[in-house]
Design a protein around this nucleic acid. Structure first.
Lengths: 341, 341
DNA sequence: TGTTGTTGCAAAAGCGCTTTGGATGGAACC
DNA sequence: GGTTCCATCCAAAGCGCTTTTGCAACAACA
C-alpha cells in the first residue's frame, strides 16, 4: 500500500492524503479523520527513501566507529551509550546508522556521508586533544554533537561531557580527607580528553592540599582488567606504596581489586580505591551498599541527551551551540576507608 | 555535484554516465574511463536515497535491540559483534542500522521496517527457545540471519552459531580427565538458546562418565560479575563443594575468581574453572599463557561472517539456507589443574 | 453587485537516480 | 546496394513521496 493506492482508494488526491497525514492546516478535519482511519486500517507507512528524497532529509543520524586495527579495543561503553541514544531516536522518529571505518578513511567517510545524503547529523565519540574532526565537520557542513570535549579547539561546537576534572578532584579530596597521602592514579590513555581532565582534577586536588603529584603513582593505558591488575601490582611493590587508588573504569577496577587482594590486603581497610562508574548495565550492582566507592555518571543517559542535542542542531542550525556538563555523583561504597596507620 | 551536473559537464546523457559508473557493457571503454575520471575529480557520490528509490533496495541491514525495561542489561558482546558485522558491511557497500525498540513493539517494528523500505535484511540476535521472530520474519518477507539457533522451530532459516554443546561437553570432559567429579555450572539464562545447549553439553559429558548431574551445582542468571561471585560463594559454602566450575562468560568468571580467592583458595590449584570466552576486546589477555582456561570463539568474527550470510540471503533469496557451526577452541590457561586430594 | 478573502482540494513539478526502449551510425554480410 | 548486426549512446518514464501553484466554491465585505 503506497500513497497513490491509498489516495485512489479514498477518492482523494495524493496531495490531500499526504497533507492530511502530515498535519497541514489546509485539509478539513473530516477528511483528515477519514484519511487517518484508512491509513491505520491498511497500516500505511510512507516509504522512507521516497520521503527522504522529496524532503532532502534522511532522518538518520550516524555514529562512526573508527577502527584502528583488527585487534583494537572496542569501547566497552559503546553498547550502553548506543542504547541510550537509540531510545531518544525512536521517540523522535530518527534512525541510527553505525559505520565502522578504518581510521585512515575517516575523513573520506564523513564526506561521503554528506555527499550521499546518508545522514542528517553525526555523533562524535571519544574526542582526543585537538581533535581534527570538529573543524572537518564544520567544513563539510554536517551537524554534529560531541560526546566529551576536545581541549585545544577554539571553535564553538555542541558537546555533552561529564565533569571529569571535578569528579576526580572530589574523589581525590575525599581520599585526602580520609588521611591518604600516597594516592595513585590508574588512568585511561591521556591522549583521550577525558583522561587528561581526570589527571588535572587529581593533580589540582593534591596540590591544593600541599601534596606533590608523584609520577611514580600515575599510569595510563587502555582500560582493561589486566592493566588494572598489572599497574596496581607494580605500585604496591614500590618502596613507599600508595594507600589509595583512583581508577578510571570499573573494568579496570576489577583488576585493581584483584591485585590488592592478591597482595594479602583488604580493599576498603588496608587500601582504598575509587573508580569512575559509567553504570554499564552488565557491571551493575544490586546490593544496597555498592562494592566500589565511585564517581558515577550514567553513560546511557549521556546517550539519550546527546541524541537530543544533535537533533536540535539539525532542527535549528542557527541556534547557539549547546553544552551540557554532567556532574558525577560521588557514591560511597565499601572500597574506601581511613588511611591505615 | 549530482548525476545531472556531472553528465552535462561531460557532454553525455545521465543514462550513459550512470551505466558507465555501474559497469554496464554498453558503454565504450574510452568514455567509461572519461566518466570515471570526472567522477573521481569531482568526488561524485550517487545519492543513496535516490538510488534506493530507483532500485527498490536500500543497501541497509538492520539490527534490532529489543529493550525490556529501562534498566535491562545491554548485551556486553554487542559492541564487538557490531564491529565485526560493520567490517563486512563496509566491504560490501552496505550500511548498518540499529534500532532500539521496546519489546512490546518488536513485531510492529519489523513490519514497519519492511513497509517503509528501511532495510533490505535483518540480523536476529539472542534467539530464545521457540523464538517467534523466525516465523514472523518469514511472513513479512524480510531476509534475515540468526546469531545462534532457536531450538523448537522446525522451519528452515539461516544461522551461525558456536557449537556450545560440544564446547561445554569438551570442557567438562577435560575437567573430568583432571580428576574432578563435583563440577558446577554457572550458566546464563537458560531461556536463551545458547545457555540451554551449554547445559546439555555439560550434562551429557557428565553422564557419559557416569556422573549424575547435581541440581545444587547448577545456576542460571544474567551474566554479571556479581552473579558469578554470589553463585560461587554459595556453592563453595555447600557441605560437598565443587572442585571445578564451568562458567558462561569472562565477566562472570571475574566474579567466580574473586569468590574463590576470597575463600582462601587458589584458582588452578585448589579449584579449577573454565569459562567461555567471546574474545571481547576490552577483556583481552596479552600474556603468553592465558589466565583462564577457556572455550574460545571470537564474537567479532561471528559478526563478520553473519553479515556476509544476510547479504547472501538478500542477493540470492532462492538459495538454500546456510548454516555455520563454529567450533570453539579449548585454550588451556592457568585456571585449571588436577583435582585436589 | 462586485471585490476580496478563505477554505478545501488537485495537478503537476521535482527530489536524483535507474532502466526501458529506442536511435544512430558504421561494419559485416549476402 | 540493401540488409543485418553490433556497439554506443540517449530520451523519457518511473521509483513514492512532498511541495508549489492554482482553481473552485463559498463567505464576507463594501
Amino acid at each position: 500500500m503506497n500513497l497513490k493506492q491509498l489516495s485512489t482508494l479514498l477518492g482523494l488526491s495524493q496531495t490531500t492524503v499526504s497533507r492530511a497525514l502530515n498535519g497541514y492546516a489546509d485539509v478539513s478535519e473530516a477528511t483528515r479523520a477519514r484519511v487517518r482511519a484508512a491509513a491505520k486500517a491498511h497500516d500505511y507507512r510512507p516509504n522512507t527513501r521516497a520521503q527522504a528524497l522529496a524532503t532532502g532529509r534522511s532522518r538518520v543520524i550516524g555514529h562512526v566507529i573508527p577502527k584502528v586495527s583488527t585487534h583494537a579495543m572496542v569501547n566497552p561503553i559503546f553498547a550502553d551509550f548506543i542504547t541510550g541514544a537509540g531510545e531518544t531516536y525512536s521517540q523522535c522518529g530518527y534512525e541510527m546508522l553505525i559505520s565502522v571505518v578504518d581510521v585512515a578513511e575517516e575523513e573520506a567517510a564523513y564526506r561521503a556521508m554528506k555527499r550521499r545524503g546518508l545522514v542528517d547529523g553525526l555523533i562524535v565519540s571519544a574526542p582526543r586533544m585537538n581533535d581534527p574532526r570538529i573543524e572537518l565537520l564544520d567544513g563539510i557542513g554536517l551537524p554534529y554533537a560531541v560526546h566529551g570535549r576536545a581541549t585545544g579547539t577554539d571553535r564553538p561546537y555542541s558537546w555533552l561531557d561529564v565533569n571529569n576534572r571535578r569528579a576526580f578532584a572530589r574523589a581525590t579530596d575525599f581520599l585526602i580527607d580520609l588521611g591518604h597521602r600516597r594516592i595513585a592514579l590508574i588512568n585511561g590513555l591521556e591522549a583521550m580528553d577525558f583522561a587528561h581532565r581526570r589527571r588535572q582534577g587529581y593533580e589540582e586536588a593534591l596540590r591544593a592540599r600541599g601534596i606533590a603529584p608523584d609520577p611514580a603513582l600515575m599510569q595510563q593505558d587502555e582500560m582493561t582488567e589486566g592493566y588494572g591488575w598489572r599497574a596496581t601490582r607494580k605500585m604496591l611493590a614500590q618502596p613507599d606504596p600508595p594507600t589509595a587508588f583512583l581508577v578510571s573504569s570499573v573494568i579496570c577496577m576489577l583488576g585493581v581489586r584483584r591485585a590488592i587482594e592478591e597482595a594479602g590486603l583488604t580493599l576498603g581497610r588496608d587500601v582504598s580505591a575509587i573508580t569512575h562508574d559509567d553504570q554499564l548495565s552488565y557491571l551493575r550492582e544490586d546490593g544496597p551498599v555498592p562494592t566500589f566507592t565511585a564517581t558515577r555518571s550514567s553513560v546511557r543517559e549521556a546517550g539519550q541527551r546527546l541524541a537530543r542535542m544533535v537533533i536540535d542542531r539539525i532542527d535549528t542550525p542557527e541556534a547557539p551551540h549547546a553544552h551540557e556538563l554532567l556532574e558525577a555523583e560521588l557514591i560511597i561504597g565499601r572500597s574506601t576507608g581511613p588511611a591505615p596507620g
